[in-house]
């Protein structure tokens, strides 16, 4: 994938109809996710955040590029590594941080925790902890929108390791068979916990898994927010206009351990450094500067703004109350 300015005098996103404002907001979302996650790691270390906490650092372009291509009436599902997608969907840093702190002001009122962010009003369907558990739900939501005659699409983020689960294949089959407007975005970060994909998956290309179902499929550079956006636009068009599902393999990388309790000794420093050279945020910043979409001064201002936003989120979370005890028994049934 090319990243530098080519010989033409047009940026490579010229055909995408992206305004400067949209480009800047995509960049900002990635930076916010990065800083939010770095702070989450610190707060986890201080014991403010409990349980399992899976960071999205390194994978920002995948979530942001995909979600930027959606409409407000579309739906998003993801696994437990869900902070990034939530922020990209416009859920506030304050409410996200409060959820991590287990506070009633959180996106799931402190009941869900790190792995279970939800905001139905934004079509953000979560936030699921069982590997391979949520893809059929995403197909089901796509089923419902089609059933009701809407042209919404549903996107489903999942880790590459989840595609080994039987239910994921059951879902792919039905999604194609029934022509459901769903896009499966498999974030291939190379590892399922400590297991490299090559040790867990027969076959070579992840996206070949959709081949048996003759589903539209392909790979995309998930470290590149523009490539991600471009491929998603195509997939969304197919889903919206022809009810054709897509299986998209986003090739990406997580810089941190699987979760906060994973020292990540199964991969080399060199490997991580290689990927950091392709950092989705740094490379995009360079391009935006190069094309004059952003200035150095604007970038610095944005850093400051985000720093404040994250700081305020932590203060908000800290100051918020825990859920009241009577909530323990609420919402078990409708």
């Amino acid at each position: 994938m090319k990243k530098e300015k080519t010989t033409t005098d047009q940026p490579r996103w010229a055909d995408l109809g992206l305004s400067d404002q949209k480009l800047i907001s995509m960049y900002r979302d990635m930076l916010l996710i990065r800083r939010f996650e770095e702070r989450s790691a610190q707060e986890y270390g201080k014991g403010k955040i409990g349980g399992f906490c899976h960071l999205y650092i390194g994978q920002e372009a995948t979530g942001v590029g995909a979600i930027a291509a959606l409409r407000d009436d579309d739906f998003i599902y993801t696994a437990y590594r869900d902070h990034g997608q939530a922020l990209a969907r416009g859920m506030s840093a304050k409410e996200c941080m409060a959820e991590l702190f287990g506070k009633v002001t959180g996106v799931s009122k402190g009941i869900g925790g790190s792995m279970h962010f939800y905001d139905l009003s934004k079509g953000f369907m979560g936030g699921w902890g069982i590997v391979g558990g949520h893809p059929p739900l995403a197909a089901g939501t796509a089923f419902a929108t089609k059933y009701q005659g809407r042209d919404s699409v549903t996107i489903c983020f999942m880790g590459e390791a989840s595609t080994n689960q039987g239910v994921v294949h059951e879902t792919l089959n039905m999604a194609e068979l029934w022509r459901l407007p769903v896009i499966f975005i498999t974030e291939n970060n190379g590892y399922g916990m400590g297991t490299a994909i090559s040790r867990a998956m027969a076959g070579e290309n992840l996206y070949d898994k959709a081949a048996g179902y003759l589903m539209n499929r392909g790979a995309v550079n998930g470290m590149d927010v523009i490539d991600m956006y471009r491929e998603m636009k195509k997939a969304i068009h197919l889903a919206r206009t022809e009810f054709r599902p897509t299986f998209l393999e986003a090739r990406t990388y997580r810089y941190r351990g699987h979760s906060m309790s994973d020292p990540g000794q199964y991969r080399t420093k060199e490997e991580i450094e290689e990927y950091k050279k392709k950092d989705p945020i740094e490379t995009f910043a360079k391009e935006l500067l190069q094309w004059g979409v952003l200035t150095e001064a604007a970038l610095e201002r944005m850093e400051e703004e985000i720093k404040t936003e994250v700081q305020e989120a932590v203060e908000f979370a800290d100051a918020s109350p825990q859920p009241p005890l009577e909530m323990l028994h609420q919402n078990v049934y409708a």
Binding site: G110, I111, G112, H116, P323
Partner: peptide
């Protein structure tokens, strides 16, 4: 344990 799915918040978990 309380007859509910387990909540995340520390105080509720303790209560459960």
């Amino acid at each position: 344990g309380a007859d509910v799915p387990m909540p995340y918040a520390e105080n509720l978990e303790h209560e459960a």
